[in-house]
């Protein structure tokens, strides 16, 4: 049935590259403009659950890879066959220099926290997102900490180690 799915998507989106790594997984690679239309197409097909949005920093290619994980939870098994068993990984590449993208909240409301998290940790700006505020972190970082060019050891040495012990501070002043 994954072959049928592949055919269906290919007929609608000829540019999409579809591979089937194993039985329960469908990997679709599309370019960055097509993602919203592909998402709404898949949602209409019955993949109604966006379980995760993930991001990978490919620093050598100078690109971010966004991955949308889609699952289907059908009420009626007979109607949809075994479609619900497969997970769809929808991948797209965006440029690292211009880290901007369109939000998927219009289609999947559950994308909100994931996009906030990616904005916080990778610094990708999602246009149309209602509140891109801090989710997990308390501080602002110059380079978002999950990017590959963020040097954690250097950061720790320059920031946390520089804070003086209170006892030392007292002695230094007096």
């Amino acid at each position: 049935m994954n072959q049928e799915l592949k055919k269906k998507i290919n007929s609608s989106f000829p540019s999409a590259k579809i591979s089937l790594p194993n039985e329960s997984r469908v990997v679709i690679e599309v370019n960055r403009d097509a993602i919203i239309s592909v998402l709404s197409f898949l949602k209409n097909m019955g993949y109604e659950h966006l379980s995760m949005v993930s991001c990978v920093d490919w620093i050598k290619e100078d690109e971010f890879e966004l991955i949308y994980f889609l699952n289907a939870y059908m009420e009626n098994d007979e109607e949809y066959g075994e479609i619900e068993k497969s997970t769809i990984l929808l991948k797209t590449m965006i440029s690292r220099k211009e880290a901007k993208y369109i939000t998927a909240i219009g289609i999947f409301a559950s994308a909100e926290p994931y996009e906030r998290e990616i904005h916080e940790l990778f610094g990708i700006y999602f246009e149309g997102h209602p509140r891109l505020t801090h989710l997990l972190l308390e501080r602002d970082y110059e380079i978002p900490p999950f990017r590959k060019d963020f040097d954690t050891r250097k950061y720790v040495k320059e920031f946390y180690e520089e804070i003086p012990f209170v006892e030392d501070r007292e002695e230094g002043k007096e």
């Binding site: 970082y141 900490p145 963020f150 954690t152 050891r153 720790v156 946390y160 180690e161 804070i163 012990f165």
Partner: peptide, 9 residues
């Protein structure tokens, strides 16, 4: 100790 978010001391 080398995490960007862990308070060390």
């Amino acid at each position: 100790w080398d995490s960007y978010n862990t308070v060390n001391h």
